[in-house]
């Protein structure tokens, strides 16, 4: 019988690995957007491949995130009384939201977004924030499992030893506000045209 912690380690490795590839490809594609000589040198086929790698790796990593969250929850035991685990759950929502935003933007704007430097920077910044939150989650997992994390070498890495105590009612309100924000943006903000490369 394989325990939930083993499945969690497996799924986290898949998530972190694929999302790291996605961010690496995103940064490369963004650099190519700013460098015509580089674009000329690598050619359109490679640029399209980098864009595809970024999108598919992010999609796979995003698909594995729920599996990592569920197995982590099952492996952690009494989550409600552990501030670090609670912070990890909340940051999981931030991580998932950033990656969904990254993929949604790329799918709706199309590959042509890389031809616009400002859009390329926005997409890269979202990916950068998302991977940092992903690494932060992994480090909190290390703190929970082993009491230490690689990010401890950073002087400013927080240990999340306290968590917000928000009542259920306020949490429902927060969730509804977040949902309303997303729906307003999706359905009321003018939609941009898809940009062909």
């Amino acid at each position: 019988m394989v325990g939930a912690s083993s499945f969690h380690a497996f799924s986290v490795e898949l998530v972190v690995g694929s999302l790291s590839i996605a961010v690496f490809a995103t940064i490369l594609r963004c650099i190519a957007s700013f460098s015509n000589p580089l674009s000329m040198r690598v050619g359109p086929k490679v640029l399209t491949g980098i864009d595809a790698a970024s999108l598919w790796a992010a999609g796979f990593g995003l698909a594995m995130i729920p599996f990592a969250i569920i197995t982590g929850y099952l492996a952690s035991g009494d989550t409600a009384s552990d501030p670090q685990a609670v912070n990890k759950m909340i940051l999981s929502g931030l991580c998932t939201g950033l990656w969904i935003g990254f993929i949604y933007g790329r799918m709706t704007l199309g590959p042509g977004l890389w031809n616009h430097r400002r859009l390329a920077v926005v997409q890269t910044v979202i990916a950068f924030l998302a991977i940092n939150v992903t690494y932060l989650l992994g480090s909190i997992g290390g703190l929970l499992a082993r009491g230490e994390a690689v990010m401890d070498i950073l002087p400013f890495f927080p240990h999340f030893e306290s968590a917000p105590e928000i009542s259920t009612f306020v949490s429902v309100v927060l969730m509804l506000v977040g949902l309303a924000t997303m729906l307003v943006v999706i359905f009321l903000q003018p939609k941009p045209q898809r940009m062909a490369e």
Partner: peptide, 27 residues
Amino acid sequence: STNIWAVRLQMCGIMFAVIGLCIAVQR
């Protein structure tokens, strides 16, 4: 200790808000 359902709701709320923020900036 805290209410785990409150944490789940906060997680969903943050996720929705961040998705909306990302899409708004991109658009």
